[in-house]
Simulated assay, not measured.
Amino acid sequence: MSTSPTTRLGVRKHFSSSILLWVRTDQPRQTGMDYWKGPHSGIISATPGMEEYRQIHLAEDNPGRWPSTERVETTIPADRKIDGIAEVTLQSALSPLKGRKQTALAYKDEINVFRRTLLYGGLPNASRWYDVAAPGEVVGSRAVIYLRRRDGASAGEFRRFVNKQLVSSMAATGVLKELRTQTFMPWNKKLWDTPDVAHDNPKDQRFHASVILGFADDAARDAFFSSRAVKDLSEQLTPLASAIHAYDVTAALTYVKDGHVLPHYED
């Protein structure tokens, strides 16, 4: 695995939010995942003002892929283990106003599939997509990482580390085919307070950034997380992060791309 310094990465900055989702437990998990993939996706895809809408389906067995690190929570608590993420990228800061009617339908439909939903939003340009793949390279495996800032750590220093050192070090491994980061504003329940669905999010459970990683295949993903580069990053993150939760992704389904609703999702 290459760990040589990376040249300056091309980056596209976006206005994105992530909705963390937990499916209902009074029915088989796959029933909920299928409903989200099917009927619920149609409601969300029809929302005006979206640049991209992607569903990130997480593996049911996800104890935590980040290497064990002293003073950092890397084992994902079973009662807070996420089932999926709705990754929504808007065309502008005014897009939420255009989509209010459709969003109201999404609010009503959540009870059919989810038991808890939490929206994490960022300021415009706080979502960044980096050019790490060569032309023609495809993603065969993914992981998503959620980071919790340590109490007392500077929010500005944390964001700078994610957007500079973390990105540069991960890209320098030479194995990534996709790299996306988001840094979040402070969580606010009022941003996504849907009826009949839980939104409990204690302060000590909240996240402050996410990273989506794409690899050629599962073997490349496994090698990445067991690499010296990741162990070094973990040590550098310890003063800033109290939790690093790394999830295996089973599917990343795109329903809206470049502002257009696709006739069928892309996997």
Rank of each mutant, 00 (worst) to 15 (best):
S2N: 15
T7Y: 09
L9W: 12
V11T: 14
R12D: 14
R12E: 15
L20F: 11
L20N: 02
L21H: 02
W22F: 07
G32V: 06
M33R: 08
M33W: 00
G49I: 01
M50S: 03
E51N: 06
E52G: 02
Y53G: 03
R54E: 10
R54T: 10
L58W: 02
E60S: 10
D61P: 01
G64P: 03
R65G: 00
P67G: 03
E73A: 11
I82E: 02
G84T: 01
I85N: 00
Q91F: 00
L94C: 01
S95T: 07
K98F: 10
K98V: 03
G99M: 09
K101T: 12
T103C: 03
L105T: 04
A106K: 00
E110P: 00
F114V: 05
R116H: 03
A133C: 10
A134G: 11
S141R: 11
A143H: 04
V144T: 14
R148V: 04
D151I: 08
F158Y: 09
R160H: 14
S168P: 01
A172L: 11
R180A: 13
R180E: 13
Q182G: 05
N188C: 08
K189A: 13
K189D: 10
N201L: 05
Q205A: 12
F207H: 07
H208C: 01
L213S: 03
F215G: 05
F215K: 04
D218T: 09
D218E: 13
D218Q: 11
A220E: 11
S226H: 10
A229H: 08
V230D: 04
K231A: 11
P239D: 05
P239S: 06
I244E: 04
H245T: 02
T250M: 12
D258N: 14
G259I: 04
V261A: 13
V261Q: 13
H264K: 13
